[in-house]
Design a binder for these strands. Structure first.
Lengths: 125, 125
DNA sequence: TTGATATTTCTATAAGTATAAAACTATGAA
DNA sequence: TTCATAGTTTTATACTTATAGAAATATCAA
């Protein structure tokens, strides 16, 4: 994930109404819910809601699809995962002992990215 | 973690320079580094840097301590962990199958909070 | 003391973001 | 068609945040 996309995603989430929308969608699961239902839960006027949904969509955090008259919004779990991974990437400089220390106690994703194991190839003789 | 604190933390991270500072500190580990070294790496004038360090500190994401003439900044791993947990909390409504689905593929912390197992107590006869 | 270094606070300007009323668009039902 | 519903776009105003120069503060060394 590019740093600029991460800033955009964090900016989209750094607002009360939008954080509420995103969490609601994360909790509703991959099928999502219609815009109207979101507005009902959060008690926002529709233009305000639409503005915030657009911000989240533009940041890649949610997706929308039309289903007859309804527009169904759902969380983009892939983006969410990448965002979390970015923040903890290469935590403690890859020093696993520091990661595990009382002061840090880093999350699972914190460990340095595994270098893919190179497939052993037979040497041509 | 309170929602308002989460919004504050996300807002603090949603800025290019601050995201850079935070990631640098996360990678440096619990011991931290002095302000000057941060400014050097990010190439920002000191008032700008100080402003951003304050924002991060105010949001609870970093801490500072004086060590002679230097001010040492370090990441607050606890806040970071709570922030990540908040975003994925009660993911997919606790439906583990949905969490594990191709579309969601939620992170480890996504599973609903474990209800602490009650210790079996001997009945007084 | 005085001076040098490390960093912060104050300040003004510039730039970006949120809100909701009004007007618009898309879909389906009568 | 015409109407109702679900939602979006446009617009203006109000508010919040970023930047960096200048001045201030804290610590140490001579």
């Amino acid at each position: 994930m590019k740093k600029s996309s991460v800033v955009a995603a964090l900016g989209a989430l750094a607002q009360d109404t939008r954080l509420g929308i995103f969490r609601l969608l994360v909790q509703k699961g991959p099928d999502g819910i219609p815009a109207g239902e979101i507005g009902e839960k959060l008690g926002q006027p529709s233009p305000t809601l639409s503005f915030h949904l657009n911000q989240l969509r533009f940041a890649g955090l949610i997706s929308s699809r039309r289903q007859s008259r309804l527009i169904i919004y759902s969380a983009n779990y892939k983006t969410m995962n990448e965002l979390l991974a970015f923040l903890t990437e290469n935590c403690c400089g890859g020093n696993l002992a520091a990661c595990a220390s009382e002061t840090a106690a880093c999350p699972p994703g914190c460990a340095p990215k595994e270098v893919p194991i190179q497939k052993r190839t037979r040497r041509v003789s």
